[in-house]
Amino acid sequence: MNRSAHLLTIALALTLTGCTGATSMDPDSLPTQTGSSIPTATGTPAASPSEESTSAPEATDSVEGTDSVVGTEDNSSATPQPEPSDPGTVPERDLNDHGNLPGTVGEASVFDDGSGTTFADMKAEEIQVDFQCTGDSPQESINGQFVALHFSVAAHPELVDSGWPYFAMSAREFKAWDADGQPVDDPVGNSAGCVAPDDLLPSPIEPETDAEGLIVLDVPAGSGSAGFVIGGFEGSYGWEWSW
């Protein structure tokens, strides 16, 4: 082989050797493109750093056409509630020092609601001081004397609206005071049996019923007064008659 042919053969061999080396390079040494998307496990491209920096605008709580914020209660347009109406008051009663309405012999005293409805009328027809018992087996007064009050009572149909089913009036619903205005501890005393049961005021008195009879009290000698309180309750006003 001449010299020119030999040199051509060597050059061709070197060329083939270089091509074979390029195809056997390590893939990890290949350059990558900065900023490219990387496939995720779902096959959806994940955002690149430059794409993550751009976020969608945040949703606001305001409603179009209003300045209020959703979730904040606005009571500015709430309808004001009316104030409770005044039901009125029961007229004041002219009570005496014992907290009772003064009664007058021969005049009716009225049990009412203070606004026109009458439940019952009671009238002290007569008061007998130092009363002499007429019963079969009377006892001596423990306070000084017996006083008999002769009452007539009319219970009206409206009594059922008073809170009381009937009108009870006996010596046990009375309080008494002596000449000095001091309370009597036991105004019933020994009054039981002073007169026959038929002479006493019947009690209780049903609505739409009239009744008449005596209330006998055991009180100190001399002047004094007695007050009737419905039910005998402490703190309740009643009606008071003097002798």
Rank of each mutant, 00 (worst) to 15 (best):
Arg3Asp: 10
Leu7Gly: 03
Ala13Cys: 14
Thr15Pro: 00
Thr23Arg: 11
Ser29Ile: 00
Leu30Ser: 01
Pro31Arg: 14
Thr32Gln: 12
Ser37Asn: 09
Ser37Met: 12
Ile38Ala: 09
Ala41Met: 10
Ser48Ile: 15
Pro49Lys: 12
Glu52Pro: 00
Ser55Lys: 06
Pro57Trp: 02
Glu58Val: 13
Thr60Ile: 11
Asp61Glu: 14
Ser62Cys: 04
Glu64Gln: 13
Gly65Gln: 09
Val69Pro: 03
Val70Thr: 15
Val70Pro: 02
Glu73Val: 06
Asp74Met: 06
Ser77Gly: 06
Glu83Ser: 01
Ser85Trp: 06
Gly88His: 09
Thr89Ile: 05
Pro91Cys: 01
Asp94His: 15
Gly99Cys: 08
Asn100Gln: 09
Leu101Trp: 03
Gly106Gln: 09
Phe111Ser: 01
Phe111Trp: 01
Gly114Phe: 08
Ser115Trp: 10
Thr118Arg: 11
Thr118Tyr: 09
Thr118Ile: 13
Phe119Ala: 03
Ala120Glu: 04
Asp121Ile: 00
Met122Tyr: 02
Met122Glu: 02
Glu125Ala: 14
Gln128Arg: 11
Asp130His: 12
Thr134Leu: 10
Thr134Phe: 06
Gly135Pro: 03
Asp136Trp: 06
Asp136Val: 10
Gln139Val: 05
Ser141Gly: 09
Val147Lys: 08
His150Phe: 08
His156Ile: 01
Pro157Asp: 15
Pro157His: 04
Val160Met: 11
Val160Phe: 10
Val160Cys: 07
Asp161Lys: 13
Gly163Glu: 04
Tyr166Glu: 06
Ala168Tyr: 00
Met169Asp: 00
Ser170Tyr: 07
Ala171Phe: 03
Ala171Asp: 05
Glu173Ala: 00
Phe174Cys: 02
Trp177Cys: 05
Asp178Leu: 13
Asp185Gly: 14
Asp185Phe: 15
Pro187Asn: 10
Gly189Gln: 13
Asn190Arg: 13
Ser191His: 12
Ala192Thr: 15
Cys194Gly: 03
Ala196Thr: 14
Pro197Met: 03
Asp198Lys: 07
Asp199His: 05
Ser203Leu: 10
Ile205Thr: 04
Glu206Val: 08
Glu208Ala: 13
Ala211Met: 04
Glu212His: 05
Gly213Phe: 13
Leu214Trp: 12
Leu214Val: 15
Ile215Leu: 02
Val216Glu: 03
Pro220Trp: 12
Pro220Met: 03
Gly224Ala: 07
Gly227Ala: 12
Gly227Ser: 14
Val229Leu: 02
Gly231Cys: 00
Phe233Lys: 01
Ser242Leu: 04
